[in-house]
Each structure stands twice: as C-alpha cells, then as structure tokens.
C-alpha cells in the first residue's frame, strides 16, 4: 500500500505538485493521467525520492519513505521509463542484473533471475542474454527495461510513460504483457501516461492531475459517470464516453448464456473490441471462448449497448 499524504513540491516558489493525498491499494494498477506540466511525473518521482517533496509524506506499507537512504529505497522499488534507459555498454543480462548486483545477490541467484525474466518476457535467454541493447528492436528494448525494473522482485513498480516510444502495434502487445505479468506477480504498479486509451485499458484506478492538483481519483467507470471537473470531462472526451466504459471490462465479463454463430472471440479482449467485431461482422451475437477454446457463452449487441449506456 502506498499512502501519499499532503505531498507538495515547489521549485523556486512555483508549485508543481500541490497538496496531493491518495492511497494506492496493493496489487493494483494505478494510472496517473494529465497534460504536460500537470505534475504527474513529479508526483511519481517523489514516491522513490528521485524528487524530494517540499511538504507532506509518502508511506510504503506504513513506513515513511524517508526512513532509509534514497538509493536503498530505489533498489526496493522498480522503475521503468520512456525510452527504456538501458545501459548501452552492458549486455541484456547485465542490464537486468543491475539491482540484484547492487543488492549483492550471489551469481547463481542472479543468473536464475535473469533467465526467468527473459523467459517471462518472451526473449530466448540463449539468444538475448549476451546481446547489447543497440542490437535489439524497440519493443525488445522496452521489455528488457521492464525486466530490469522487476529483477529485484519489488512490491512496487513505477512506470513513467513506459510505452510512449513504441509504435501502436507493439504498444498494444506491451500493455497486454504488462497486465499479464502484473496478475502473475501481484506487483503494485503506478504508471504515468497522457494516453487516455492506455489509462482505461490498464487501470484499476485512475488519478487525474491538473495544474499540480489531484482533481479526481477513482475507478475508470466513476470518472466516466461523474467527472469531477470540466477538465476530466474533456480528458475523457464526451463522444468517447460509451467506448471508454466498454474498454474497461473484457468480453468475458459480458458473457450471456445462449448460442451464437461465427468466429469466437477470446474472453480477454475488451468489450470495446467485441462491439467492434460485432458491428464489423454484421451479427447480433458472437460466441466467446476461453483461452483453452471452450465456448463460455455469447456477447450480444444488445447486451453491450446496455453496458455502454450512462450508468444510473
């Protein structure tokens, strides 16, 4: 659990983050959104003390994050950034091993961890461990960057626009992988982005920052239903509202009993994608299949339309 308590950051009298308080539940994905200069990155960087706050406190599982030296705190918190920031003079394996080496793990444990993470991120250890970052594609570099952040098994992973430099196809894959890994490891993820599609796709809770202040913090559906300010409304996009609602949950959540014809949808696709597939195929219903191929039921145009309507 991360408790942010009245945190404020001023640079030369200019307030960048203004008295922000929020509690981030363990094992969830929290996305901080806002425009450039809204203070979202500064807020994130105060959690691992890359930026020291002017006032307020941040507690991790009850302990003030100033109870240990900054570098020790940062070894316990994963940190992944836009443009990956891999060390160009070190191999993929050495990059991933960065924090374990700092923590003084023995070689066998480090090697095992590197192999485990490379496999988890679908990079063949035999082929990739000894390559240098410049020999990888953008998507592979990004995956190694996240693997490095997770190497010391942190409870908390901070991500600053981690997918910002990726093309749309690789980005969608990277987001899906991140969700799968988050579910597998139970890591608490705090992610900063300005991409609302990304926020709705990933977040359990969304925090909206505007001019240094936290204007709304809640579940994605709440933001669509009750935007706290006109700014939140604009950020979500009036015409996007029904689709935002649908992009929160998966087709599996909208399954109804009954038969349907056609190519089955995977239960993990978003309801927004399911609607798109229904419209494109011209059908009123499509079957939904679990990952093992068994048919769970169907999604219907009518059912999805109901879910896309303004919540009462």
């Amino acid at each position: 659990m991360i408790e942010i308590d009245g945190i404020t950051k001023r640079y030369d009298g200019i307030t960048v983050v203004n008295n922000v308080s929020m509690t981030i539940e363990p094992r969830t994905v929290t996305v901080i959104v806002g425009t450039s200069g809204s203070g979202k990155t500064t807020l994130l960087r105060m959690i691992n003390r890359l930026v020291e706050p002017t006032a307020g406190a941040i507690r991790l599982d009850g302990d003030d994050n100033r109870s240990m030296p900054g570098f020790e705190l940062r070894r316990r918190i994963g940190y992944a950034i836009q443009g990956h920031g891999l060390f160009p003079h070190r191999t993929v394996a050495q990059n991933i091993a960065t924090v374990p080496v700092l923590l003084g793990w023995n070689k066998a444990r480090i090697d095992a961890k590197v192999t485990e993470l490379l496999t988890l991120f679908q990079l063949d250890p035999a082929a990739f461990a000894n390559r240098f970052p410049h020999e990888l594609s953008g998507g592979q570099q990004q995956r190694v960057g996240v693997a490095r952040a997770l190497a010391a098994e942190p409870n908390v992973l901070l991500m600053d626009e981690p997918f910002g430099a990726l093309d749309p196809i690789i980005r969608a894959k990277a987001q899906a992988d991140l969700l799968a890994i988050q579910r597998l490891l139970g890591t608490t993820i705090v992610l900063v982005t300005h991409d609302m599609d990304e926020a709705f796709h990933l977040a359990h809770k969304i925090a909206v920052m505007d001019k240094g202040a936290l204007v709304q913090y809640g579940r994605p559906a709440e933001l669509v239903k009750d935007p706290a300010t006109a700014f939140v409304q604009t950020l979500i996009g009036t015409s996007e509202r029904p689709f935002r609602l649908l992009s929160i949950e998966t087709a599996g959540d909208a399954v109804e009993p009954g038969p349907a014809e056609g190519q089955p949808l995977a239960e993990t696709v978003s309801q927004r994608d399911a609607l798109s597939e229904l419209l494109w195929s011209g059908r009123a219903a499509l079957p939904v299949a679990a990952t093992d191929g068994t048919i769970l039921g169907r999604v219907t145009l009518e059912g999805l339309t109901r879910r896309a309507a303004k919540p009462q």
Binding site: N48, L50, R74, Y79, I81, H84, G85, T98, V99, G145
Partner: peptide, 15 residues
Amino acid sequence: LPPSVMEAARGSGMT
C-alpha cells in the same frame, strides 16, 4: 551522457 540512461542509473538505486 544520454539523460534517460542517467535517470535509469539513479532510479535503479546506484549511489
């Protein structure tokens, strides 16, 4: 030096 590399070095807890 590339700023993202320096940021990563600090963020990973190097002194």
